[in-house]
């Protein structure tokens, strides 16, 4: 049986959707893509720019292959690639995504001069001593005293929060914002607190209970029930 279409083009209200078949060879796919897009050039020459979403099914595209497809589509002036999607990703990427969405539990005292660097969220059971530092691309939760430096969302996530049973940090950083301890030690309440970035790009330290309102997304683990 000869398959007729390796490339299917669908028009949607947002633009074009290209379905690329995942069974044929890549060169076949490229040829057909080129053939199919060619006539469009004449028709749509002066019209407005169309967004193109490409779906590659179960085919994994290497960077190089992705570049080739972008070249072909990019030749048409009025087409602009919005996204290239696939059902499959590299194991390496999958592991990274998994790590980023997991909470890593670590039991240790982060002492002066030590830096704990975590991808994703971290639950530290222990203290961060003055001079110690914890960095995480996600949120930081500390069951213990935070006396050193905590940097949440260190890759730029301003939504990240820092929670600690005892919050008396030398410095707090969230994404690019930072705050430091007041010069005079006030009497701190002996209760758990959280820190987040408000709309004015300032780090606010508040009671834990406000988190539910401010960062509802933290509840991602709860499914159904609660």
């Amino acid at each position: 049986m000869v398959k007729l279409h390796n490339v299917m083009i669908k028009g949607t209200k947002d633009g074009l959707l290209l379905h690329l078949d995942d069974r044929c060879s890549f060169s076949e796919l490229l040829n057909e893509l080129e053939d199919k897009l060619l006539p469009h050039q004449q028709v749509n020459d002066d019209s407005h720019v169309l967004n193109v979403r490409i779906h590659t099914g179960n085919r994994f595209l290497s960077k190089n292959q992705e570049k080739k497809i972008k070249e072909i589509v990019g030749h048409k002036k009025n087409l602009q690639i919005e996204s290239i999607d696939s059902n499959v990703i590299l194991k390496k990427d999958a592991e990274r995504i998994k790590r980023e969405s997991e909470i890593q539990v670590i039991t240790k005292i982060v002492r002066s001069g030590q830096i704990l660097n975590i991808t994703g969220d971290v639950l530290l059971i222990g203290d961060i001593n003055p001079g110690g530092k914890v960095m995480a691309s996600g949120n930081i939760f500390i069951l213990g005293s935070l006396k050193g430096i905590a940097h949440a969302g260190c890759l730029g996530n301003e939504e990240a929060v820092i929670c600690a049973s005892k919050m008396s940090p030398t410095q707090l950083r969230i994404a690019d914002c930072f705050t430091r301890a007041p010069d005079r030690e006030e009497d701190k309440p002996q209760e758990a607190e959280c820190a987040y970035v408000n709309d004015a790009q300032q780090i606010i330290i508040d009671k834990l209970i406000v988190l539910k309102k401010i960062r509802p997304n933290l509840n991602r683990f709860v499914e159904g029930g609660l």
């Binding site: 002492r111 002066s112 001069g113 001593n129 003055p130 110690g132």
Partner: peptide, 12 residues
Amino acid sequence: VRDADRIIGLLE
């Protein structure tokens, strides 16, 4: 105490 903390980290 700060330096002792650093040293303990290294000793661990």
